[in-house]
Amino acid sequence: MSNTSENPNPSSSSAKITLKTSDNELFEVEEAVAMKFCTVKQYFEDEKDNDVAARGSSTVIPLPNVHSAVLARLISYCKKLPQSNAVADNHEEEETKKKERKQYGTPGDLVDLISAANYLDFKEGLEFFNQALADHIQNKSVEYVRKFFGIKGDFEPHEEEKYREEYAWAFEGVDED
């Protein structure tokens, strides 16, 4: 998928930035990709101010909160990003996007991806993974959501009854599990 011809700015495609994950793996990524991560961008720009010569692969940016498996997926997502930021303007497009989101990963994956994207301040990714996770529980029953995330209900029976009463309007017509 990493087709350099898709890069809108080929001159910068040669510049590489090295990222170091929590499990000490090194990733050499194109600058254009790395700059999607605002946390990295900020770090990089601060570094650049200090030492212009440090620009490039000699700089290793540590990402102590991101595991290599997660970073690999973030990078591949980044490369697949469409060039235009156009919002899906028709129903069909929205359906395709929804399908894509649904197949993207397990809930555990998505939780990890959201955490990492949040830490890296990777806006497009954050939006996509959040929406993907939200899609999974959209209009599902309480029991389904608990099973989905492996959560045990910890309410007292009277408490749960009270909350369900309060939200009774929402319990009409939820999807079958």
């Binding site: 949040n118 996770l133 995330f149 959560i151 309410f155």
Partner: peptide, 26 residues
């Protein structure tokens, strides 16, 4: 279980109905 910061992020992507149901999870 998703950590609270992930929940807080995802919550913004839930529609009111799902948000209401999610409130009754734990």
């Amino acid at each position: 279980t998703p950590p609270w910061e992930v929940l807080a992020l995802v919550a913004h992507y839930l529609d009111p109905k799902t948000l209401a149901i999610a409130s009754c999870v734990c």
